[in-house]
């Protein structure tokens, strides 16, 4: 027989759940449902939604490619000042996203520390481009991935890597076939967080990449601007974004659980 759940846990849990879900319910109640289908299939919303999904997914890929090795380094290397590095990695979490966007401009902008050379040598200018959106989202979302994957790396028993070495596996093969599969739950969790954060990103995106329909206007930007003139439309856009992200995450989750 199942033991009874202690009320000291259940009560705050229920309050916590309500705290998270009630604002959502508010959106749903206030939504002008009649205009929802029209909004859903309007060209601008479709464009913003496609751009959002594309950019969030590309940003997540960038985060995976750079973030997983970074997490590994933080978890496994004996670099001096690793604790400080670990704290610095979380800076984008603490930084107001708009400030993050300004910081990106200062470095990668047309006159930025690095950006001026990108412009001079390669004619590449990142602000106001879709690539800029991906970059801004990756900047803000990467800590979610790194923290989650680093935790998984630290929890993984390094002796399995030694066992792989005694079987003749190189460091890279060991990482690919032994370490990475063992931290996969952490990577999946981190990827989900990272993607969700990237999808909802507003401040850094609009500051670094600006806002231009079809190029840099993602759903959160569209929502914000709609709020200026037509709050109802903003609610509808928010619900669209919400439904799509929940559908994608739920779909992925089922896949991963089956796998």
């Amino acid at each position: 027989m199942r033991s009874r759940l202690p009320v000291v846990l259940v009560l705050p849990a229920v309050i916590g759940l309500a705290f998270l879900l009630v604002p959502l319910a508010g959106l749903l109640v206030e939504a002008p449902w009649a205009t929802l289908p029209a909004q859903l299939f309007s060209a601008e919303v479709g464009q913003a939604l496609r751009l959002s999904l594309l950019c969030a997914s590309l940003a997540t890929i960038v985060c995976l490619v750079l973030g997983v090795p970074l997490a590994w380094l933080l978890a496994r290397s004996d670099l001096p000042g690793r604790g400080l590095l670990r704290a610095l990695v979380t800076v984008p979490l603490v930084l107001p996203p708009v400030v993050g966007g300004v910081a990106l401009l200062l470095v990668l902008g047309r006159r930025g520390l690095v950006g001026q050379y990108l412009d001079q040598w390669f004619g590449v200018s990142l602000p106001f481009t879709t690539a800029g959106v991906v970059l801004a989202e990756a900047f803000v979302a990467m800590p979610f991935l790194v923290i989650s994957v680093e935790g998984a790396f630290r929890a993984a028993d390094p002796r399995y890597e030694e066992a792989a070495a005694t079987l003749g596996a190189s460091r890279w093969l060991t990482f690919r076939r032994v370490t990475l599969p063992s931290v996969m739950p952490g990577v999946v969790a981190g990827t989900v967080l990272c993607w969700a954060r990237a999808l909802g990103e507003f401040g850094a995106t609009i500051t670094f990449a600006g806002n231009f329909p079809g190029k840099t206007t993602t759903m959160p930007l569209a929502v914000y601007l709609a709020l200026e003139t037509d709050p109802d439309a903003a609610i509808v856009l928010s619900i669209v974004l919400l439904l799509v992200s929940v559908a994608v995450l739920a779909g992925l989750r089922d896949r991963w659980i089956r796998a």
């Binding site: 028993d157 002796r159 399995y160 030694e162 066992a163 076939r177 599969p181 063992s182």
Partner: peptide, 10 residues
């Protein structure tokens, strides 16, 4: 190894 260290995912 003492606790074998078989790779759990394989």
């Amino acid at each position: 190894f003492q606790d074998y260290l078989l790779f759990a995912t394989m």
